[in-house]
Amino acid sequence: MHILTNAGPLVSLIAGILILVVPRLLNYIVAIYLIVIGLLGLFGGHLR
């Protein structure tokens, strides 16, 4: 069950990295947002 809770942030992180491949300003903004949300989702609970 723990794997299913990390699926959303992991997909967000992968999508953000893939979007970085296409060098456009909007894509960079969206990619950075997705990477940050993905990292917070994966490691946010472990930082406390």
Rank of each mutant, 00 (worst) to 15 (best):
M1I: 15
M1K: 15
M1R: 15
M1Y: 15
M1P: 09
I3T: 10
I3N: 05
L4F: 13
L4D: 08
L4K: 11
T5P: 02
T5I: 15
T5M: 13
T5H: 13
N6V: 11
N6Y: 15
A7N: 03
A7D: 03
A7W: 11
A7T: 07
G8T: 09
G8E: 10
G8D: 08
P9Y: 04
P9E: 06
P9H: 04
P9S: 05
P9C: 05
P9R: 06
L10T: 14
L10W: 07
V11K: 03
V11R: 01
V11F: 11
V11I: 14
S12K: 09
L13W: 01
L13N: 01
I14W: 04
I14T: 12
I14D: 02
A15T: 07
A15H: 01
A15Q: 01
A15D: 02
A15E: 03
I17L: 14
I17Q: 04
I17N: 04
L18I: 08
L18V: 10
L18A: 07
I19F: 13
I19T: 11
I19S: 11
L20Y: 02
L20G: 00
V21I: 13
V21P: 00
V21A: 08
V22C: 07
V22Y: 14
V22S: 10
P23A: 12
P23K: 10
P23H: 12
P23V: 10
P23Q: 12
P23Y: 11
R24H: 11
R24F: 13
R24E: 11
R24S: 08
L25Q: 11
L26Y: 14
N27W: 11
N27V: 05
Y28V: 14
I29Q: 00
I29A: 06
I29P: 00
I29W: 00
V30P: 02
V30D: 05
V30I: 15
A31M: 09
A31C: 10
A31N: 08
A31G: 14
A31D: 10
I32N: 01
I32M: 05
Y33T: 15
Y33V: 15
Y33N: 09
L34Y: 07
L34K: 03
I35K: 00
I35Y: 02
I35V: 12
I35D: 03
I35N: 00
I37Y: 01
I37M: 07
I37N: 04
G38E: 03
G38V: 08
G38F: 03
L39F: 05
L39C: 06
L39T: 08
L39R: 00
L40R: 12
L40V: 13
L40K: 12
L40A: 06
L40W: 06
L40P: 01
G41V: 04
G41A: 04
G41W: 02
L42I: 08
L42H: 01
L42Q: 00
L42M: 06
F43S: 06
G44H: 02
G44S: 01
G45Q: 05
G45H: 07
H46Y: 12
H46L: 09
H46P: 10
H46Q: 08
H46S: 10
H46V: 03
L47N: 05
L47C: 06
L47E: 04
R48Y: 15
R48D: 13
R48N: 13
R48I: 13
